[in-house]
């Protein structure tokens, strides 16, 4: 691990002013992804600003009837919250499908949104990767196809977001609230918090270096049952090959793009009276990539929609 300066933020303003004054600084919350990448020297921040003790862990009711989840709420705290379990079960299920208990006890909601891709070529410092080293090339394009993006990829990068949580957040139309050192507060849909790779895959989000996630706000859940599906290479504790969250008439896909992918074509088809299979096919008709992967995502999307419609999900 490269040397870095370490500072514990006293409050949000202190964290923001440190970030604004320190190019190359990173906020540190749970650290489960950032420290891992620092050990691999894929991340080499000059300074870590420890925001882990800031009072941003509360989960509170909103006036609109939704929930405001502080950025430092742990994955475990969110998935265990009775209000999340009863009103947003697809979110609880998505969180519980991610990582191990040890990781979920440490990982935070804000950190989850800021985590980097697990593309094996991004994680391997010996391989070309445009996201890690701009201009070096993309090893994934001709490499393992299991995690290739099916939507929104570019010639520069086919990496996908590894977050299970954000797939459910996107299905619930959740909004991420951030603040910068100049005091400006912004609210962005979680769905579009992450950039598609385009010509600059090294930039994951359009958050400024001094921009800190404060909270994620969930509107009231849409009427209707919910469902969550995740396909992976073993029964527990590994990343998604693909995932699906369904909340009422909304569908979001995971591990198929650089951001959680709202399946709006599938949603439109459902609104027009399509079957689950037809709706999934409508979305996947616009996917690029290996047929095996497209077929897998088509099937689990249809399954999740069907499950939600039958009200089988809890």
């Amino acid at each position: 691990m490269k040397p870095f300066a370490f500072e514990r933020a006293r409050d949000v303003d202190h964290a923001l002013s440190l970030a604004a004054a320190s190019p190359g600084a990173r906020f540190l919350a749970g650290g489960t992804n950032l420290l891992d990448l620092m050990k691999l020297e894929i991340e080499q921040p000059a300074r870590l600003i420890d925001v882990g003790r800031l009072p941003l862990a509360e989960i509170a009711e909103t006036a609109a009837g939704g929930l405001r989840i502080g950025a430092l709420a742990t994955n475990t705290a969110v998935a265990s919250d009775p209000r999340v379990r009863s009103r947003y079960p697809a979110l609880a299920r998505a969180i519980l499908a991610g990582g191990s208990v040890q990781l979920r006890n440490k990982a935070t909601v804000g950190g989850n949104l800021m985590q980097r891709t697990r593309c094996p070529y991004f994680m391997d410092a010996a391989k070309p990767c445009n996201k890690r080293l701009p201009g070096s090339g993309c090893s994934a394009m001709e490499g393992l196809s299991r995690s290739l993006a099916l939507f929104g990829a570019s010639e520069m990068c086919v990496a996908v977001s590894p977050s299970d949580m954000s797939v459910a957040l996107a299905a619930f139309d959740a909004v991420a609230e951030t603040v910068r050192a100049d005091g400006s507060v912004r609210r962005r849909p979680v769905e579009t918090l992450h950039r598609l790779p385009g010509e600059a895959p090294q930039v994951d989000t359009d958050l400024a270096p001094d921009e800190l996630v404060l909270a994620v706000e969930l509107p009231p859940p849409p009427p209707g049952p919910q469902a969550w599906r995740k396909v992976r290479a073993r029964a527990s504790y590994t990343g998604a090959i693909a995932s699906v969250a369904v909340a009422g008439d909304r569908v979001a896909l995971g591990a198929v793009a650089a951001r959680p992918w709202r399946a709006r074509l599938a949603e439109a088809a459902l609104a027009d009276g399509a079957s689950a299979a037809e709706a999934a096919a409508a979305e996947l008709a616009h996917a690029e990539g290996p047929e095996g992967r497209r077929s897998l995502v088509r099937r689990i999307t249809a399954d999740a929609i069907r499950e939600a419609r039958e009200g089988a999900a809890s």
């Binding site: 489960t32 420890d50 882990g52 208990v101």
Partner: peptide, 27 residues
């Protein structure tokens, strides 16, 4: 593994189990 994948370093911090390898002492 020293990367949070194997759990051999599991300890309880303030009563909660975490991977000690994926945390800095200064935190």
């Amino acid at each position: 593994c020293d990367h949070g994948q194997c759990g051999a370093c599991t300890v309880l911090v303030n009563g909660v189990r975490i991977n000690a390898c994926l945390s800095l002492a200064v935190m």
